[in-house]
Design a protein around this nucleic acid. Structure first.
Lengths: 116, 116
DNA sequence: CGATATGAATACGGGTCCGTAACGACTGCC
DNA sequence: GGCAGTCGTTACGGACCCGTATTCATATCG
């Protein structure tokens, strides 16, 4: 019974946040882009294209393109690794940090409405 | 400080579940499709195309196409409303219920790994 | 040095999704 | 019965994303 409740609450939370994100004009990222963005901001650096691809279970071009589009939005930035110039280091930005923070606020806000 | 922790936990949860969904072969739904699916299975029926469009803040064709693709996967089904044959009633399916249940399991499982 | 390997980016063909606009089916009111 | 209004679907053009294969730059090893 308590397990049933947990599952329903978890689903409701996921639903509420998804709905909020779909409605939101500002944040329009695909699930993959969001996973990439959060990995960059939550996991310990450094992050490379190949490393992200492995972690996400997708091909490298997917990461490259996601970084392209998120880079246009100034959510992430790229820099060559000086020690091995084949590598690209993915870096955080102020705008990206704010977006992640905002996402966290949404999740927290929706989570708080669950417990009556 | 406790608020910081909550936000970080919420973000980590969202990240972990997103990552799991991206990696998962079976579930490949966009955020919008997921929001539609969960609305159908969590909110009280009946659900119409127009009603879903209003709730999601998107246009009707978005709902129609999402129902098309999710219908092909047998996650939802459609039926004409006999009382007003202009309406289409969106119905749940066994496979859809299982998919939603599975998503709930994923969220719960990831949530449980947060509390040390 | 040259050969090989590695990392990222790009080219390509195909698929999906979007919003606007138009369309067909249906209802209800005059 | 006809006409305006509603609901869902479809047509269209554009944007985005995918995976495979290729290319370019760099590193490493013989």
């Amino acid at each position: 019974m308590s397990v049933e409740l947990r599952a329903l609450q978890a689903l409701t939370l996921w639903h509420d946040v998804s709905l909020e994100l779909v409605r939101d004009e500002d944040i329009d990222l695909s699930l993959r882009q969001m996973a990439i963005l959060l990995t960059i901001y939550l996991d310990t650096p450094p992050h490379t294209v190949r490393g992200l691809a492995r972690k996400l279970g997708v091909t490298k071009p997917v990461i490259t393109r996601a970084l392209d589009s998120m880079g246009k939005l100034d959510l992430v930035s790229r820099r060559r690794d000086d020690q091995d110039r084949r590598n690209v280091i993915v870096q955080r930005t102020v705008k990206g940090a704010l977006a992640v923070e905002r996402l966290g606020d949404i999740v927290v806000a929706k989570a708080l409405t669950l417990r009556p």
